[in-house]
Nucleic acid binder design. Structure first.
Length: 802
DNA sequence: TGTAAAAGAGCC
DNA sequence: GCTCTTTTACAA
């Protein structure tokens, strides 16, 4: 029997990144297993922290005195051997702490809640007792929320031995329970009881009668109350008298509404080829990966569903990753209608409790199919038979906080582990993926034809002409005419405003003053719905100024184009059109997204106006016109992927128009009509875009020809951040090969966020054997300055360069 | 010479 | 990240 547990402690620092040894007390020895969460004393004060058991052994080679595990939090392991191994790999490749990796794999309710309480043990002065304790024995100690003098008072009392502090680790992961009742008496016994009940106890008689009708069944108390009107109090009394028993049964929060089942659709030849090839890999248990390249409307989803069904048919499980933005109810229903209750869904719209329940359903093997966004790639599915990643190119698959993983790489790792295929699907694959398929790393499967749709006609509108006519507007004449035609024909229109690199702000026309966030280095964004100015980085909020805070002038005006402003212009220019606006503001509330789409689907509006989020996966048969108001705002961003993003977005949104019966039209308004990304998106020519863009990447030594890594330093004092970054750059130059390109150090484009200054260096390399060791050393060596408020972040494959 | 604030070191 | 220990700052 194991005596010693190796535990990764919930202290995210570099020096506590390796397991610590703890003695297992005898009473825990037959409970504790690898992959369980435990509570252990840690540090000088032996405060209590959560830890993850990663190993068990008979003896320890640690010289010092061991502390003992205090308690076990789980009845069964929450991380299986695969996920433990994966977390090691993640920590190593993303330069993250192991405990942070484990945390991201688990539902957030499994994260520890820490609390400290203060208890009186000696003679506490009466005034302090009255002021702080009142009539309570124990109070919560939180230095953040208490007045500073109370904190020092308490610390002094503790030093004098008059009070003591206790540590608490709370487990938030609670399964939801539901009260149920079961009759304990036979009808004859119930009849006897009835004799003893006072005749005016009407509800008790009701209850006795009701119990007679549910012999041998277990019914939820809630149901009893709503059906019969008997109150909870009466039921409790019934339980006391032994008529029935009340039991709290575990339930899941997800009341999966029933979906009508659908059968697999007939496949065309191309789809059939794809399904066959993928199925061979599933049957052959091969970690063979695919790039499924299919234009919008070519039936990729049906290929996913049928290959997933193949995996289930041989007793394996299936994981389907979808970008958060396309994880719409329509999408989910499509999967549920094929696989029913076998499906678990993981997305950000669920409450923490709901996420926990879905996670447990997967973990208990009650769900064999998982659909979810980025973090669903860690779903605890055993025996995976296929992993699908739809819209493979979406940048939301990359997490830009610790651990900075890309779900695609995790999916490929898991495919290798389970010896199952990974299918990357997209109409516009990322250049990295497309290049890998060129090299033969992925087998390329093509779906070049639309099934029910014909390709829309795409027209580029040069907005410079409009401006030359002296009109400052979001709507060209061509677009206005096109919209009016649809209104006359009772067809629908989708208008997209590209918000990337764009926001509305207020500026003084007299002195040019722009209202900025006091914490961050960016201008505040105007929000007409709440009548406030908001910072999109730190959330700071303030009122809209009437006079200029700088010069006191009254000519303060709005600039920039937000969806609200466009909506306003639309109402002025086309007052008869019914407009629905969809952006981050109108969809913040739960279910709002779904409601807007339903309204539009029911023809309650003629025009759907929105940001990027309307580009993905929406499918409305009566939309025959798609307008892109400003195609080029993203092009000016200092990001080598700017063209790729623009091309993707335009191609996606163009796919929203038209069906076989009603041909679609797309109008793209731009100030850069000659730009290749816009031109080729209009022609829907991915292959040529790939060729052109690859040449540009080659010339600039950018991915996929080179790898990139980004090191960021931040500090409240700009000079400290800058100095640290210069030292790090020096070390990189000394240790990395001369072929490697080091860019920077430079202040970030938004230099100050949340009162911190950011400096960064980007490394571009082809082969760099020393990189891993160098970056690890940098992390280690910055440990001591890190305590003085310096933060170092390493991203092994950054997507955000600004 | 005393106290308070800042810096340092270790955590099994 | 937190706590205890040591060092440094600053006033009396």
């Amino acid at each position: 029997m194991a005596q010693i547990a190796l535990i990764i402690v919930d202290v995210p620092t570099m020096q506590t990144n390796d397991p610590y040894s703890y003695v297992i007390p005898t009473d825990l020895q037959n409970q504790i297993e690898v992959g369980m969460r435990v509570v252990v004393p840690f540090g000088r004060g032996s405060r209590l922290v959560l830890g993850m058991v990663v190993g068990l052994q008979e003896e320890t080679d640690y010289d010092g005195k061991l502390k003992a595990v205090l308690s076990v939090m789980d009845l069964a392991p929450v991380l299986n051997p695969e996920l433990l191994k994966l977390s090691d790999w993640l920590a190593e490749t993303t330069y993250a702490f192991k405990i942070s990796c484990m945390e991201t794999m688990l539902p957030s309710v499994m994260r520890a809640k820490y609390e400290k309480t203060v208890r009186m043990t000696g003679d506490v002065p009466q005034d302090v007792q009255d002021r702080l304790f009142g009539d309570q024995e124990e109070i919560i100690y939180d230095p953040e929320k208490m007045p500073a003098q109370d904190v020092s008072e308490l610390l002094r009392l503790r030093a004098a031995g008059q009070i003591e502090m206790d540590y608490h680790v709370k487990n938030q992961a609670k399964a939801k329970t539901q009260l149920t009742i079961t009759p304990l008496m036979t009808p004859t016994e119930l009849a006897n009881e009835r004799q003893n009940v006072k005749p005016n106890a009407k509800r008790q008689i009701d209850l006795l009668n009701y119990l007679g009708t549910i012999q041998g069944q277990t019914v939820s108390q809630h149901q009893v109350i709503t059906e019969t009107g008997i109150s909870a109090a009466v039921i409790s009394m019934g339980a006391q008298r032994g008529w029935l028993k009340k039991v709290a049964l575990e339930t899941y929060r997800d009341p999966t509404h029933e979906v009508t089942r659908t059968e697999p659709l007939a496949l065309n030849d191309e789809q059939q080829v794809a399904v066959n090839r993928i199925d061979e890999a599933i049957q052959g248990r091969q970690a063979h990966n695919f790039l499924l390249e299919g234009v919008t409307g070519s039936g990729k989803t049906e290929v996913y569903l049928q290959t997933m069904a193949q995996a289930l048919a041989i007793g394996r499980t299936a994981l389907m990753l979808v970008p958060e933005i396309s994880l719409t109810p329509q999408m989910v229903n499509r999967v549920k209608s094929r696989f029913g209750s076998k499906v678990a869904v993981l997305h950000s719209g669920l409450s923490t409790g709901e996420k926990y329940d879905e996670w447990r359903r997967i973990e208990r093997h009650e769900a064999q199919v998982v659909v979810g966004a980025r973090s669903a790639v860690f779903a605890p599915l055993d025996n995976l038979g296929i992993i699908i990643m739809d819209e493979e190119h979406e940048t939301s698959y990359k997490q830009d906080e610790m651990p900075r993983y890309h779900a695609r790489e995790v999916a490929l790792w898991r495919g290798e582990y389970h010896q199952c295929p990974v299918v990357l699907g997209s109409a516009t694959p990322s250049l990295e993926t497309r290049a890998r398929s060129q090299k033969g790393l992925y087998e390329r499967l093509m779906l070049p034809h639309r099934i029910h749709q014909q390709l829309p006609t795409v027209q580029i509108v040069d907005m410079r002409d409009q401006l030359a006519n002296g009109q400052e507007t979001n709507f060209s004449d061509a677009l206005k005419t096109a919209i009016n035609e649809r209104l006359d024909r009772h067809e629908q229109v989708v208008l997209m405003l590209n918000r990337r690199g764009f926001s509305s702000f207020v500026m003084c026309r007299d002195c040019g003053f722009v209202l900025k966030c006091p914490n961050c280095d960016i201008s505040l964004t105007l929000h007409m719905d709440t009548h406030t100015m908001k910072c999109h980085y730190c959330g700071h909020e303030e009122g809209i100024p009437k006079i200029c805070p700088n010069c006191g002038g009254h000519k303060i005006r709005y600039y920039g184009t937000g969806t609200e402003k466009v909506e306003q212009e639309l109402r002025e220019k086309l007052p008869e059109a019914r407009v629905l606006r969809m952006d981050a503001d109108t969809t913040r509330k739960k279910g709002a997204f779904e409601r807007i789409l339903t309204q539009f689907g029911n023809h309650e509006a003629d025009i759907l106006l929105g940001t990027q989020m309307i580009a993905k996966g929406l499918d409305f048969p009566d939309v025959t016109l798609v307008g892109v108001l400003n195609a080029d705002t993203a092009l000016g961003l200092p990001d080598f992927r700017a063209s790729e993003r623009t091309f993707e977005l335009l191609t996606q949104v163009a796919g929203r128009a038209g069906r076989a019966e009603k041909p679609g039209e797309v109008l793209i308004q731009t100030f850069n009509p000659d730009n290749y990304a816009i031109q080729l998106a209009a022609q829907q020519d991915y292959e040529r875009f790939y060729g052109v863009e690859m040449r540009i990447r080659h010339q600039g030594d950018y991915p996929p020809y080179f790898y990139t890594a980004q090191i960021t330093a931040s500090h409240e004092d700009e000079a400290v951040a800058a100095k640290a970054m210069y030292e790090i750059t020096g070390e990189l130059q000394r240790r990395l090969s001369p072929e490697t390109i080091i860019l920077g150090p430079t202040p970030k484009a938004i230099a100050r966020v949340k009162r911190r200054y950011f400096y960064q260096v980007v490394v571009k390399y082809k082969h760099e054997a020393a990189l891993k060791a160098t970056l690890t050393d940098i992390l280690q060596s910055t440990q001591s300055p890190e305590r003085r408020g310096l933060k170092i972040a390493i991203d092994p494959d950054p997507y955000n360069f600004i």
